[in-house]
Design a binder for these strands. Structure first.
Lengths: 214, 214, 214, 214
DNA sequence: GATGAATGAGCGTTCATTCAT
DNA sequence: GATGAATGAACGCTCATTCAT
């Protein structure tokens, strides 16, 4: 269980339960603050206040401001992503696996809107530490999709004339945008309820039956 | 043809030919710098240096740092988006219109990678000025998609059992992600060449023919 | 006893003994720098250096540059003015009260030449924060004079055919100018020693006994 | 007739009537702007706009910003002060001379409120160029008072037991404060009408007849 | 002479980070 | 470990002054 892997290099300063609690409070606060203001407009002081600790305390648990963001991704967000694989394994058929993946994805992000927002915002940002973490998670996600697509092709349920790379972007893009819209909206609908229709769109497309006669 | 509409309110200090050139040089420099570092990590000084002008000169053309970004969108990016509608009008059938739209979109962003990057980065950012501009452009884009979908439904080429809002997100998300991947890649392939396959995916989905028997 | 009342609104960040010292050091430094260069030509850096603190430290105790000046008046200068009333109360007769007031005024300003200078300079300046503070103190001073004059009129020692407003200006103007001259001079004489002669001038005027025969 | 004596050192750039007009327009504009905002908060651009000339034009007539202020005093304000002596000469007796002086002083400053304000503000400021000019004018004024007092002493109308330096400050301070009050008020009364009562105060003081029995 | 666009030094202010307590 | 006052580098922005036209 890797806790603050980034700040570890220097000294493993924090090990006790009670401190772990403080570590988590800071992380939670950071998610909230970062997601509201964005990384650059957020202040270490704000995070400290939100977490109920002194400014200086932050630096006992994190190397610097960037490291906080890094830990949010390597620890908090990663937890979420790690579950995706398990979830996918439970299903048998490609389509069901895809549905499981997306549904779980939407459910998790629905559960923590701040984290969802932060993930999206920072995905497109230029903060070195976070970038690497995100790339890693993104890659994991894309790999799962790859496997599902290949499985579907073997099943005969997914077309074989596809550029896998494109398909991956096609799916992940649609999912991201659906989440993004929800995050920036009034949230008066259940994000996860969209999963089925979205998967259907991905599988069938928007065209009608007779489209291939064209 | 309205140039630098945002900075005009206060005093239209600079209007002569030669100056328009300087206005554009700053804008171009800003696209480059902002897209490389992001808005908050970019420095007015960097933009000035990149544009080959003094720091103070920036403020003859723009109200402040945010205004530069605002102008990039209201002037430079908007130009691009304005062409989309024309392009779409040229085609007759829904599918062709969609192809035109996306192809043109990819072509334009391929032409100016920095602008493409900046657009994506700032779409997910929290910079007030830019946010409003982007929402406006985004809305225009979504409206075009709406029209295309409705046309297709009338033609009988697009399914009528669709949640239009979801479809719009589905399409725009896929396009964005494809562009994003290209921007962050080595760019050793032609972005616009992906258009046809992407549109096919959107229309037909990833499933095989017999999928509806399921 | 309210210390630094102005900067308190936001956050009372600093309250401990040791810090109060720093607050006062900055205030003292500000009086010196402001009085030497005037508000606008003074630099926050100069004040910081004079106080022996870092630039940023200033902002732990004051909201901004103007707030420093505001505090000089609301705290430091006000202390001085507050004593005037007490002093006046000790005397019985109008003339003695006037002498007490002016003597104390000169003594206090003689004690801190920088503060005296600053008060005079900023009285005629346009710095919002200071303006209000000064008006308040000025009003208090004028009120005291009013009371003294009325008392004298009841005693029969002060003429009743006077425009009180004019009298107030007449007195305060004379006092200010006397102080101003001393401040800008080599200070080789005792300012407070002038008090008696000045009061005599105010009471008797410059004319000779037989003047009213004219 | 010394025009812009300060900027003359470099090159006597301006000599034609038409330019003299421009010189005056700038001076007039400067009085207005400086008196409203104070020297340091005024902008050369503001003065140029107020005068209806280009920013650069200012520097054809004045060496720099300070020089504008210097010229306001050496040329415009000096004109006013020069008349005082003539005015005083017309009267015979000391008291009448004093009345003439103060009345004319109030009349002139009443005529140009901006100039009055500027004079007072800058008297207490630290702008080198202006300081010297003002000292010069101030000295002239004080000399006139000296002469009047001595004359009065010879006439037997003014007390001989006076410290002349103090008397001068006593008079000039009262006059300044009366003007200052008017400048900062709504100006709904005639400043010059105060002259007689003020002179009476200076001569007789605020005490009653029987005061010397005390 | 007149213009006003261009310059860049200089200042107020913020905030990540440190360190004495 | 925890604190939060202190630090000072860095940045956005202003404006007096210059100079090509």
């Amino acid at each position: 269980m890797n806790i603050h892997s980034l700040s570890r290099d220097k000294k493993l300063k924090v090990t006790k339960r009670s401190n772990n609690d403080k570590y988590n409070r800071i992380l939670e606060a950071a998610v909230k603050v970062f997601s509201t203001l964005g990384f650059f407009q957020s202040t270490v002081s704000q995070i400290a206040k939100e977490a109920g600790v002194a400014d200086g305390t932050i630096y006992l648990y994190f190397k610097n401001k960037e490291d906080i963001l890094g830990n949010v991704f390597s620890y908090k967000t990663k937890q979420v992503f790690d579950q995706f694989r398990e979830e996918v394994n439970k299903a048998e058929r490609a389509k069901d696996k895809l549905l499981s993946l997306i549904k779980r994805h939407l459910e998790e992000f629905e559960r923590d809107k701040n984290l969802a927002n932060l993930y999206l915002v920072e995905t497109y940002q230029k903060v070195r530490t976070a970038e690497d973490q995100i790339k890693e998670m993104s890659k994991m996600y894309l790999d799962i999709i790859s496997e599902i697509v290949k499985l579907g092709q073997n099943e005969g349920t997914i077309r074989t004339d596809l550029d896998i790379t494109l398909v991956k972007r096609f799916i992940i893009g649609a999912v991201h945008e659906v989440i993004f819209t929800w995050v920036r909206s009034a949230n008066d609908y259940r994000l996860s309820f969209v999963a089925e229709e979205l998967v259907e769109l991905i599988i069938k497309g928007i065209g009608t039956c007779d489209k291939r006669k064209k």
